[in-house]
Design a protein around this nucleic acid. Structure first.
Lengths: 150, 150
DNA sequence: TTGTAACTGAGAATCAATTGCAAATAGTCA
DNA sequence: TGACTATTTGCAATTGATTCTCAGTTACAA
């Protein structure tokens, strides 16, 4: 069995919950590609499958996957939460282009370390953190010059 | 005239917009205290004033204040955006306690510097960034031990 | 002072997300 | 294996935040 499925099943069993075909579909879809996604994108992909599933079910499945440690919310674009798998890929932060919407991932060990230092200073026990930098990507910087009227 | 009002008036004039009593009320309220706030809190404080104002007006005023550089959205709590003044106080990041909701501010120059370095690496021109660390504050760490069933 | 484009409040509309409910079902236990 | 039961599901209704519409009001430039 695929590892993420095992993790999910274990999580559900431990909570007295069930591993249903719908939950499997959501899990499979998420792990069939890498990168970010939101609820709407998932629904678009899954609704037309044989025995598609409802939006409510996806909404109900997301927190389970998060608690199982398989996905996490990483940021918001146009006011919708974006998720990504956290199983298998190390933590990283994001550069988000305001213009084209592209997302670049990076990991800077030194920043991670400094964050821990800050937490220590406050006696704070960190659970998760999120760093997002918004701005203009390389490709968009030229076009952007003409429309700086915000 | 108070500085923030001057800034707001200048911004509005430059855009061909008007400085109304309602906008002044919102601005004054925001600058009457420090710390974070959300739309609902503002509305609660302003609705009962003489000639109180509507929720719609507050919603319409927020983006103007943001574009004028007077406030910024800093994070979300229970799915509501939280704002803070950015005029007068330097940029900082946040530690957010999952348990009690308290917010601690910090500024770590080295993290700021490293972010710029990352941006350079990507040829990315940063406009704003947001770093939030969620976890348990000093005071909550003891209570939290008994309820780690998430 | 006047003209006009911008503004306001109120309520309707929208949009994502949540919930109630009745029917279906996974998974346990006999 | 089969029955039982708490959990799930889809659907539709609901919620809660935010935005929009519109008719009356107003700031402010000329």
């Amino acid at each position: 069995m695929i590892k993420q499925e095992l993790i999910f099943r274990d999580y559900l069993r431990a909570k007295g919950l069930k591993f249903t075909p719908e939950r499997r579909m959501v899990l499979e879809e998420i792990f069939s590609f890498s990168g970010h996604f939101d609820v709407e994108a998932l629904y678009d992909k899954l609704r037309h499958r044989v025995g598609g599933l409802s939006l409510a079910t996806i909404y109900r499945t997301m927190p389970l996957l998060i608690k199982a440690g398989l996905i996490k919310e990483v940021m918001r674009c146009q006011n919708r939460p974006q998720y990504e798998r956290c199983f298998g890929s190390p933590h990283h932060d994001h550069l988000i282009c305001i213009k084209c919407g592209r997302v670049f991932e990076f990991r800077e060990e030194e920043i991670e370390r400094l964050q821990d230092k800050v937490c220590q200073r406050f006696g704070f026990r960190p659970i998760e953190h999120r760093l997002g930098i918004k701005g203009y990507c390389k490709n968009c910087q030229i076009k952007e010059r003409n429309s700086r009227n915000v």
